[in-house]
Design a protein around this nucleic acid. Structure first.
Lengths: 340, 340
DNA sequence: ACGCGCTTGGCAACCGGTTGTCAGATGCAT
DNA sequence: ATGCATCTGACAACCGGTTGCCAAGCGCGT
């Protein structure tokens, strides 16, 4: 039985199995994918030989003939942004559990790279999960017509989405700052193409007006720690006593810059971040930030996508999911200077 | 010309192009992949039609018929470990530049997952880059016989590798600590299956003996910040005044724990990390650590792999590359308590 | 005018599976 | 014994390219 392995060293195919079992290749295919379609005895023989030959189906061939690739593309604007680590891990685990392969693509914060990646993936994947898409509504919508898509942190009617509810957490942050005596507050904006940043600002501006405090907008800034220096300087210059940053990267960068300039946090300036990324808890001072279950967001996105790919009987497919967000208070926020 | 787009909405194939141009499919294939094999005029026609039809070759089919998938697997033990961010970015950029696709796989620090991923990738990729492999020498060697492999931070004779020279940086760190007056030093070890950790310890122990100082080994510890607490406690209990940690994650975790316990860094205890990951510069205090060009390591690994895949005329293929490492001194190391 | 070699394009097999269709075998009722 | 439905497996087409081989067409030297 075991001696036949000596022959060819290349991976076994269904034809090898078929030859050994004395059946047709199609029978082997069915035995493996549609077991009930084949007599239990032949099936047993085939399965035995398959395991003995250490048979591994060729994914390429499978994809070519069946049209299903068993892969899902995950597009992120910047792999090195810690925010995406947990998200990626979430999608990776959930996809693996469902027997899918994850194709991770870094779109380099560019709408063009994003669009071409999608076009590429149209044949190379069964579906796409796109985070913080830089595409226009129309472009995203037309892409979604060609291949199943779930968007994360991008809300376009007609495109299933997982949205992390930072806008509402923004109000929490605002109340937190107000209760500490701050009345001159800045929103440190992210990229203009980021819908998240826009929505957050809208929510913040509305809440600020409601509460009668002065919130101004600074930026835009790139979502990197390096941008934090410029953001910090802008904040200082604007005379505010507290900032709500687009994300933790910028906030941490601001922390560094403020320290360099001898401006104490939180005594002279309070800083609130967003995302609660790796590092937010051990920077100096630890960052008050808006936290949310990022990994879970990834899992939910995968579930929604798989529901689209394999429509179940129970037609109730949710096409929008809101992830809760809460404020995590750490050391970077404190009483307003005047109030002391 | 443009009206034909109205017909089928599915992606164009070479057959569509062939039909329109009145040539055979094989000619189209050659025009696109072996341009010199085809008359310049027919080629021009074909290319024009191809762009007009927005033709995108089907990767699956290409892979199936040619045997080359155009993909490279990149295996990392833990996607959420910041050390790998820059590495992944390095491989991603270099692979994309060479027209390859990156398949990123999280092996969950498990040798079994790693082995099965490799087997899977044997058909799904042209080559594999494996970081910090948990596999045995034999297993890695036999895998390398089946598919081109480049290892990162894993040195097995016969397997091309990019090695980050942390062992030699370890001596620098030791001298740094000695010059600050430390004489009782601990090495906070990583996982037992990590070759890097072993090599680092060997180098450190040798250097310590040479210099006549006492260096003991603590651990092993998992390479996560959470392990830092146990590591910090072990270090305190062992009575050392300085630690060299397996990596920055552990070191940062130690910093947090030491702070909780009211032990000042660096006054009471000095801590040296390794890798200079995201966060090492803004933790509290900023971490003295051994830095190296990680992203470049990823690029080099890709270059070595591609050289294997497409053997050039100049046969001199390097199969081992050593990345330089240097000590970056920040705030987590200082004079030994006794010496003050 | 002939033979030669080079260029250029077509034919067909093949990569490794999937799937529609059909025929032989089997079992059961009539 | 005949008819009919059911089960089982084989055949072959197909997915979308690649590639070895062959032949027609061409220019050129003799």
């Amino acid at each position: 039985m075991a001696m036949k392995a000596a022959g060819t060293d290349r991976p076994a195919t269904i034809h090898d199995i078929a030859a050994i079992c004395g059946v047709a290749a199609s029978t082997v295919s069915r035995a493996l994918s549609t077991p009930e379609r084949v007599n239990i005895r032949t099936r047993a023989r085939i399965e035995a030989v398959a395991t003995e030959l250490n048979y591994i189906p060729n994914i390429q061939a499978k994809a070519l003939s069946s049209g299903r690739t068993g892969a899902v593309g995950v597009l992120v604007p910047d792999i090195t942004n810690p925010f995406y680590f947990d998200l990626i891990r979430g999608t990776q685990l959930q996809l693996k559990a469902a027997g899918y392969t994850q194709l991770l693509v870094d779109t380099e914060e560019s709408d063009e790279v994003e669009a071409s990646s999608m076009e590429q993936l149209r044949k190379g994947a069964d579906g796409i999960i796109v985070t913080a898409s830089r595409l226009s509504d129309e472009a995203l919508l037309s892409a979604a017509a060609k291949i199943p898509i779930v968007a994360i942190n991008r809300d376009v009617p007609g495109v299933p989405a997982v949205v992390i509810d930072t806008p509402s957490a923004t109000s929490q942050a605002l109340d937190h700052l107000i209760s500490l005596g701050h009345s001159r507050i800045a929103y440190v904006a992210g990229p203009v193409t980021s819908q998240s940043s826009t929505l957050r600002w809208d929510a913040l501006a509305a809440a600020a007006e409601e509460r009668g405090v002065d919130v101004r907008r600074l930026g835009p800034f790139a979502p990197k720690t390096q941008s934090g220096a410029a953001a910090a300087d802008a904040a200082v210059h604007s005379g505010v006593t507290a900032c709500i940053a687009f994300n933790d990267l910028i906030a941490i960068g601001m922390l560094q810059r403020l320290r360099e300039r001898g401006i104490r946090v939180p005594e002279d300036m309070s800083v609130v971040g967003c995302d609660d990324i790796f590092g937010a808890d051990f920077c100096n001072p630890p960052l008050t930030t808006m936290a949310s279950p990022i990994e879970q967001a990834g899992r939910v996105a995968v579930s929604m996508l798989l529901a689209q790919l394999n429509p179940r009987g129970g037609g109730g497919t949710r096409n929008r999911s809101l992830m809760p967000t809460h404020l995590t208070v750490r050391g970077s926020t404190g009483m307003a200077p005047r109030a002391c």
